[in-house]
Amino acid sequence: MDILRSVHAVATASGDGTGTGAIDWIAVADAAKNVTDPGDLTLSEADRQGYATDVRDARRRLRDVGDVEFDLPDSIEVQSRHHWIDANIRTFERVMRPIEERGRVTLPGVTRVVNTGTMAFMLSFLGKNVLGQYDPLLLAEGDEEHGLYFIHPNIVDAAESLDVDFPRFRRWIAFHEVSHAAEFGAAPWLSDHLETRMQDGLDALADGQFDREAFSDLDTAMTAVEGYAELLMDRAFDEEYEDLREKLDARRKGGGPVARLARRLLGLGMKRRQYERGAQFFETVADERGVAAASAVWERPENLPTEEELENPWKWIARVNPDSRL
C-alpha cells in the first residue's frame, strides 16, 4: 500500500478521467487501491474445489427447500480486494451518473475533491470487509450477466479472527450469496423493479428534490430481498450455524471509532435492520404456510409486502396466499 499516492490521487482529482463530473472515478480507483492491501489470492486445489462444491451444493439445496427455479450467474469469481474495488467502482459510477450529469455543483473543484475522497474511503473500507457479493448489476447497459463474487482474503482473515473452521465458514458465505442469486433468478422482474425505483429517486436528487415514495419502495423491496435470503439460507444450510452468526455480528459491531463511523456513514446498521425485519416477516410466513408459500413473493411485483404488511405478516398472507397450507 502507498498512502501518499492515495492522498495524491484524491488531492489532484480533476474529473478528467471520466468527463467533468463531480467525481473522478480513475482517482477513486487509484486512491482506494493504494490504501488497501489486495490480499493473497493463492488458491490451493482444495480451495478451488471447495468454492465450486459449496456453490453447487447451495444451488441444489436452495432450489429444493425454497421450491424455486434459478440458474447461477455465468460470472462466478474468487477475487482479491482490488478486484472487488474495480467491480464496484463500475456499479457506483452507474448509480451516481444521473446526479453527476444533472446535479448543480457549487465550487466544482473543491466538491470534486471531497466527493472523490469520500468514495475512495467508502470503497477501501468495504473492500477490506465484504466477504461475498451477489451483484445484480443494477442500471447496467445492455445484457450484462449478473455476478457472484467471493473475496478470498477477507474470508480467510475473518475465519481466522473469529477462530472458526475456514471451509465451514466459506460454505456459509456461499449459501448466503447463492440465496440472493435464487431471488433474482426466481424473479426476472426484480432487477427492473429495483432499477426503476432507484432511477426515480436518483433523478429527483439530481433535480434537488427528494422522492420519499421511491426510496421507501426501494427500502421495502430490499427488506424483502434481505429477509427472504435469511430465511432460505437458514432452512437450507446443512448444519447449525448460530455460532458463526453471533461471532460475525460481534465482529461487525466492534472496531475502533473510524470503523464505527464508517459503518454509520455507509448505512450498514440500516442493512442489518433490513435483515432482521425481513427475516422476522418471512419466518412468520414460513412457519404458518411453509417456505414455498413464502416464495410466492417473487411471482410478481404486486406480491412484495407493503410497509404495513412487513409489520403484520398475516395481512400479506391474507392478500397473497390465503389458501396455501403447510
Rank of each mutant, 00 (worst) to 15 (best):
M96R: 04
P167T: 07
D238V: 07
G142Q: 10
G132N: 12
L218K: 05
D57R: 05
G290W: 09
G147S: 15
E101A: 08
T18F: 11
N321S: 02
L190T: 06
A186V: 09
E69F: 08
A206E: 15
R260Y: 04
D16S: 11
T91G: 07
K247R: 15
Y149V: 00
A318P: 09
H146V: 13
W298F: 10
N115Q: 09
R5Q: 15
N321M: 10
E307Q: 01
L266F: 09
R59H: 09
E302T: 08
I26S: 09
R272D: 07
L148P: 07
T118P: 02
G117P: 03
P98L: 05
D219N: 04
S324M: 11
T91A: 14
L190V: 07
D203C: 01
G269Y: 15
G227F: 03
A262G: 02
T284C: 13
P305V: 02
G17S: 13
R251S: 11
H180G: 05
F282C: 06
F281D: 04
P98D: 09
T53W: 08
I23Q: 06
Q49C: 13
R168N: 05
R112L: 06
A221E: 14
D192Q: 13
G19W: 00
G227M: 03
S216Q: 09
Y134Q: 10
A27N: 02
A186E: 03
G66N: 05
I317K: 12
L162Y: 08
V225A: 01
E100K: 00
D165G: 03
R61F: 00
A181V: 07
P322V: 02
R319G: 06
S216D: 14
L138P: 06
L304E: 14
E195A: 07
D40V: 03
S216I: 03
I99A: 08
T116L: 09
L304G: 06
V105Q: 01
S80N: 11
A224R: 04
Q133T: 08
A250R: 11
Q79N: 14
L123G: 10
D157R: 15
F121M: 08
L266E: 13
S161T: 15
L202V: 03
V35T: 01
R264A: 14
A286T: 03
D217N: 08
K33H: 02
E101V: 05
E69Q: 15
A292S: 11
H8T: 13
G142I: 06
V110E: 12
L131T: 12
R277L: 13
G132S: 13
T111C: 07
F92Q: 14
T36Y: 02
